[in-house]
């Protein structure tokens, strides 16, 4: 493939031949491309996938707006710094994602997942309504709760709104439904129990305050606010409520106690113990202006009166007019 001086190189003819072959390749490529996206090929499309009130296209915009693939990968493309998200929805299910995304900086606890599962629309999407059935159906959620519950994660807290979270979950539901030709390969060994694997030792869970399901408060510390602080972490409150006055998914708790608040129906309410008890047990009964019904799950079946009182004591300790 070289042309010595004096030899006829016939560049023009060869160039035309090359362009001809290239044209043939282009035709093959175009035919294959066309066959890839015709309707008869059954492939999930985001238009057709929704999660509760959110559609996957909306979620894809959120996914790009936060540059999620700058750390994660999606269908294997991205930054390899964090797990691939293609099948995450199928692995951990919607309730775990609902519990995780509002404050991604820490891993959700069992109760936090359980609380999300109480929402009828989440339970419907998950296809189960008890936490045990949920963990059986989504073992990856059970593994996450068991190993990392309430510990700090390495993902930064993102200022995700309620709608953005719903959209993201819809998008991940869509990618879970995509046919990716068998990728990623399904592991044939259980890595956690495999003898040659060296998984991180299971992080000892924060000293268990109580088992909320059993409803007994064990050895309540002298200070109920201390207990409330632990409970707030364990039961997932802190995913949406910050300890200062900044609003997250829900209002910030700092300085909240004793203030006056305008409710969504236009009436005024004074935030006292009664108000907070109602807000925790049956949140939809009174929704502050600027927030929506149905976002916060009801804790009436999760926490007993003593535990609610402890959380209220904690909120009160975070400051307010009556302090």
């Amino acid at each position: 493939m070289s042309c010595a001086p004096g030899e006829p190189c016939e560049e023009g003819r060869k160039r035309r031949t090359a362009i001809g072959v290239l044209g043939l390749m282009a035709v093959i490529f175009i035919v294959l491309s066309f066959a890839s996206f015709i309707d008869s090929r059954v492939q999930a499309i985001p238009d057709a996938v929704s999660y509760t009130d959110y559609d996957a296209v909306q979620g894809k915009r959120v996914f790009q707006a936060y540059n999620c693939m700058g750390c994660h990968t999606i269908v294997g493309n991205g930054a390899y710094f964090a797990p691939d998200l293609t099948k995450t929805y199928a692995h951990v299910g919607p309730a775990w994602l609902e519990a995780f995304l509002p404050s991604a900086g820490s891993w959700p606890t069992r109760t936090a997942v359980q609380v999300q599962l109480q929402k009828p629309e989440v339970a419907q999407e998950a296809g189960v309504d008890s936490i045990q059935a949920y963990f059986d159906k989504f073992p990856a959620a059970a593994e996450r709760v068991e190993r990392r519950s309430a510990h700090a994660s390495t993902m930064p807290d993102l200022p995700l709104s309620r709608d953005e979270i719903g959209g993201l979950i819809a998008f991940m539901k869509y990618t879970s439904e995509m046919d990716t030709e068998g990728w990623p390969p399904v592991p044939q060994v259980a890595g956690l129990t495999f003898p040659q694997a060296l998984p991180m030792p299971a992080a000892s869970a924060v000293e268990s305050v109580s088992s909320p399901a059993s409803g007994t408060v064990s050895a309540a510390p002298g200070n109920p606010a201390e207990l409330g602080k632990k409970l707030a972490l364990e039961t997932g409150c802190t995913a949406c409520h910050s300890a200062d006055s900044r609003a997250g998914i829900g209002p910030g708790w700092g300085g909240l106690f004793g203030s006056d608040v305008e409710l969504a129906d236009g009436s005024q309410a004074h935030i006292d113990e009664t108000y907070l008890h109602t807000a925790i047990n049956t949140p939809d009964a009174q929704v502050a202006a600027g927030f929506n019904k149905g976002v916060m799950p009801a804790y009436a079946n999760i926490l007993d009166a003593e535990q609610v009182a402890a959380i209220v004591a904690y909120i009160r300790s975070l400051g307010g007019l009556e302090q």
Partner: peptide, 12 residues
């Protein structure tokens, strides 16, 4: 990640 299926990036 793929063979053992451990997907905790911050840990395992």
């Amino acid at each position: 990640y793929r063979t053992l299926g451990l997907d905790w990036f911050g840990g395992d």
